[in-house]
Amino acid sequence: MSKEKSTETKSDLISLADEEGVKQVIVNSILGLWDVVNNLTRLKPSRRAAAALAKMGCDIITGGGPGLMQAANEGAASATGRAQSVGIRVDLPFEQEVNAFVTQAFEHRTFFTRLHQFVLASDAFIVAPGGIGTVLETMMIWQLLQVRHLEDTPLILVGKMWPGLIEWTRGSMLSPDTPLANAEDMTIPHCAANAEEAIAFIREYHTAWLNKKEKR
């Protein structure tokens, strides 16, 4: 590093004793963060999957929040027909209000009762990329299907984050030394690369479901 460059770097440093300088750095940093947030909010999640399912007469049930949940509720609300756009919320101090595209809202005090309603109300589960809560709910649905507390209910994992989870589960739980699951348990979730694949799978399932319903 040259002496000139070193001098320029040192001149950019601000002493903590310089209150005005420190204040300006903080203000600029916060404004910079808001610029990032504003850019991210320009990314509109796809709602075509929910719209396609709603046109098939399927009610759309989400957590009722922003982002992908709002996109799904918006997709359902935009479709013509009698499909409901439902939001099932949980009471948290930092959670936002239910999004504007929910036509029927429910509020729960705990994640457990909320997930229970999800399970009771759903005939298929489409899981988008998400955080710890999404993974928790996915694993719970997987486990209910494994022990047949749920039957004939698709669990579709959409996006790039899920195949790695399935492979980790397969490699860790099907060890020949200490098997923790059966090979057929690994076939319960269906991975879809995108919304189109998820819609195609649901269409096939929905057609079979209607045929079975007519025969009863």
Rank of each mutant, 00 (worst) to 15 (best):
L157P: 01
M139T: 05
L115K: 13
K10D: 09
A105Q: 12
L68F: 00
R148A: 10
A72H: 04
E151M: 08
R42K: 15
P93G: 12
N39P: 03
L144F: 04
K23R: 10
S172E: 11
D12T: 07
M139K: 00
K55W: 01
E19A: 12
N194S: 03
G32W: 02
E95P: 02
G21V: 08
I156E: 03
F111T: 07
T110N: 11
R89H: 08
F111G: 06
C191G: 01
L33I: 12
G130S: 06
Q70K: 14
A192W: 02
G87Y: 02
D177C: 03
W168T: 12
A100E: 14
I188K: 05
N39G: 11
E204W: 00
N182W: 01
R82S: 13
K44V: 14
A193N: 07
R82K: 14
A77N: 05
E19L: 09
T80N: 15
K55N: 11
T187L: 13
T110K: 12
S175I: 08
E184Q: 09
E204Y: 00
V127R: 01
K23Y: 01
V37Q: 05
Q104R: 13
G63C: 09
Q24S: 14
P45Q: 07
L145S: 03
I166G: 00
A192T: 05
L53C: 09
E95G: 03
G67D: 14
